[in-house]
């Protein structure tokens, strides 16, 4: 159905004192005066429910900063049906913008330093950084190389270290669950 008549929605007619208008005027009542205590209580309850429903969910973003790809294999394994990482509310996301947690593998190479820094900066606060494996924790076998910066803590602040070469999937899972359940404040530098 088409109509050539101009629509009037954008210029409402002045309200006339009809019966209909009289009934509607003054409604709804203005909101009651704000009770600060009530608002605070409501906020706390909402927060609690939100934490119950959403609090165990974290989005993970991996940066291989110089790994041998062993740690990547075991991070992949976390997604197989044996470990099924997503049932804990943990999942890998494609963009750092969607992430809460940065996982770092490898002794940070000089060639990857900038990419690691920029990925960290691209993750919105609050955020955590987890060093996965011995290399990002200590620099591993590669700490003395001309091509490596050393441990990941030289580039980004580390909140949790999961040791191993590579860590077994169970160790990765235990580390990530500990992060979920910890009350530690996320990194904010």
């Amino acid at each position: 159905m088409t109509s050539d008549r101009p629509r009037s929605a954008s210029s409402p007619r002045p309200r006339r004192p009809t019966l209909f208008g009289l009934i509607r005027s003054g409604l709804p009542e203005p909101p009651p005066p704000t009770d600060d205590t009530l608002v605070r209580d409501l906020g706390l309850r909402v927060q609690e429910r939100a934490r119950q429903r959403l609090g165990r969910s974290l989005a993970l973003r991996l940066v291989d900063a110089g790994s041998c790809n062993g740690c990547e294999l075991e991070l992949h394994a976390l997604q197989n049906p044996f470990y099924d990482l997503e049932r804990f509310g943990l999942r890998f996301v494609a963009s750092p913008r969607h992430a809460d947690v940065l996982l770092v593998t490898g002794a940070v190479t000089r060639n990857m330093r900038e990419a690691l820094e920029r990925t960290y900066q691209a993750i919105p606060d609050p955020k955590w950084v987890v060093a996965v494996g011995d290399c990002p924790a200590t620099g591993g076998l590669f700490s003395q190389s001309y091509a490596c910066v050393g441990p990941a803590s030289a580039v980004v602040p580390i909140d949790l270290t999961i040791p191993g070469c590579p860590p077994r999937p169970q160790d990765l899972l235990a580390g990530l669950l500990a992060l979920l359940e910890s009350n530690g404040k996320p990194g904010r530098r």
């Binding site: 291989d64 110089g66 790994s67 490898g106 060639n111 590669f142 190389s145 001309y146 091509a147 490596c148």
Partner: peptide, 18 residues
């Protein structure tokens, strides 16, 4: 080249275990 760790350089002079 992003994951160049300098393995050949690290191998120089190492004993067989390392």
């Amino acid at each position: 080249g992003y994951v160049h760790r300098g393995v050949e350089g690290l191998l120089r002079g190492e004993d067989l275990e390392q």
